[in-house]
Design a protein around this nucleic acid. Structure first.
Length: 417
RNA sequence: GUGGGCGUAGCUCAGUUGGUUAGAGCGUCAGUUUGUGGUACUGAAGGCCGGGGGUUCGAGACCCCUCGUUCACCCCA
């Protein structure tokens, strides 16, 4: 074992896997920029207060944050997510609304690693600040849906719920608290602990012994105000109009107080139930306000790369490994010819590679094959003398041919087309 | 934070109730008569058997600790 390895929960993404990551982010960027979203690149590090506002006194903040005091005595933290940073940026810069942004990049949470869960993990996401319109909810959800379609994931399900207006939510939580307290003996031990902290999250329990009592619990839909019901129904009918299938799941909740109205999750059909959520989001108000800005409506979602790529593996999408280069230059004269030709090709926009350390021709041909190149250019002493090169197709039955140096670029361009 | 599984070559793994120079496949590199890849054959390089301590005449195998990894719990902004 080497002396130095990655820290727990951190890993290197090497080629060719890294190419998949790039494609993933590129596909997401194309999906959302086509809908008018601009990219925001917030810093990895924020004042810890930015994140404290997100979830006061939860495990999130108390145990799972990468925080430290910097050399200027500032208490800072590596961002555990990007929504809070986006809201902080909104307050700091006050852009015109609606402000539609997308992001991608690593986040950090000090958790015990397991399948699809790392301490440094990448997410992509979008947020829209300053518009409280159910059609925007539909747009945001539809963009997530479109993205999965674009990737080729067939088995993603959309789960949807509404938490109502703040007052609805508050009434509902009070009713839940009363109900669960009356039946506390029937709850699992873990859920008893959860109840003491947040009654809403008990609904989220995946423990079978809780299922019965949860099934009989008060329903959020009985607490909706007229406005909340109208908002939610507009969202649902919008999704139907776009032919986006969904399941209303009243157990889909968010523990944090500033969530309201629409919440949703994208669930991977092939993943185990305990960790099948590959992305989620919802409408939130109050977060911008908590960070010192004006009361501002917000909605967004984030998708985790790791779990989404697991789902891609399961469904066999994204499997093709792209070739490294189109052309491979084989030079048996020592390497100077390859130096010149690769330079010319690259300047002409043609991808190419070569061998180093003056290996045997056979060895260079092997490297050419492995590179995935479509053609090899072969230069030996004969070719140097004739001021020519051999163009050898590597895929298919075509014969090789000798071509004058002056026709390098046109001949290669033709061979690749 | 809690509990279980697993750490042997770059990778995937064998390794017999503890017994002498630790193996295979893949990969890498080099050859198979002089300038041609994929297939085949030959050969080579490459291991403090995760680390530390202990038991033993003897440990890759057994015990303890530790680190890493993995699965689950927990949590999930």
């Amino acid at each position: 074992m080497p002396e130095f390895q990655t820290s727990p929960g951190m890993r290197d993404i090497l080629p060719p896997e890294s190419a998949r990551w790039r494609q993933f982010v590129a596909a997401f960027a194309e999906t959302v920029t086509a809908a008018g979203y601009g990219q925001i690149i917030p810093p990895l590090l924020e004042d810890i207060g930015v994140f404290h506002r997100v979830g006061e006194a939860t495990d999130i903040v108390t145990k799972e944050m990468y925080d430290f005091v910097d050399k200027g005595d500032r208490h800072v933290a590596l961002r555990p997510e990007q929504t809070a940073s986006v809201c902080r940026a909104f307050v700091q810069h006050r852009p015109a609304t609606p402000w539609k942004v997308w992001y991608s990049g690593p986040n950090f949470r000090y958790e015990r690693p397991q399948r699809g869960r790392y301490r440094q993990f990448d997410q992509v996401g979008i947020e829209v600040l300053g518009a409280n319109d159910p059609y925007l909810d539909v747009e945001v959800i539809a963009l997530g849906w479109n993205f999965f379609q674009r990737l080729g994931l067939q088995q993603v399900h959309l789960h949807l719920n509404s938490l109502g207006e703040p007052q609805d939510r508050q009434n509902f939580v009070a009713a839940l608290q009363t109900y669960f307290s009356e039946h506390i003996e029937q709850l699992s031990d873990a859920s008893k602990v959860t109840l003491a902290k947040n009654a809403l999250r008990v609904l989220d329990s995946k423990r079978p012994e809780d299922f019965d009592i949860i099934a009989k619990a008060p329903k959020i839909s009985d607490f909706y105000s007229e406005a909340a019901r109208t908002h939610f129904e507009t969202v649902l009918s919008g999704l139907r109009t776009l032919n986006i299938p969904f399941t209303v799941n009243e157990k889909l909740v968010r523990g944090l107080d500033y969530y309201r109205h629409t919440t949703f999750e994208f669930v991977g059909g092939t993943l185990d139930s305990a960790q099948n959520a590959i992305g989620g989001g919802g409408r939130y108000d109050g977060l911008v306000e908590d960070l010192g800005g004006p009361a501002t409506a917000g909605i967004g979602f984030a998708l985790g790369l790791d779990r989404t790529l697991l789902a891609c593996d399961d469904e066999g999408v994204f499997a093709s490994v792209p070739a490294n280069v189109d052309v491979f230059v084989v030079d048996t004269t020592g390497g100077n010819e390859a130096l010149i030709i690769t330079h010319q090709l690259r300047n002409a926009g043609i991808s190419c590679d070569r061998s180093f350390e003056n290996r045997s021709m056979k060895s260079q041909m092997k490297a050419a094959d492995k590179s995935g190149a479509l053609v090899a250019i072969i230069i030996g002493s004969d070719e140097v003398e004739a001021d020519a090169f051999v163009l050898r197709p590597l895929r298919g039955e075509e014969q090789q041919s000798t071509i004058p140096r002056s026709e390098l670029i046109p001949s290669i361009t033709k061979a690749l087309s």
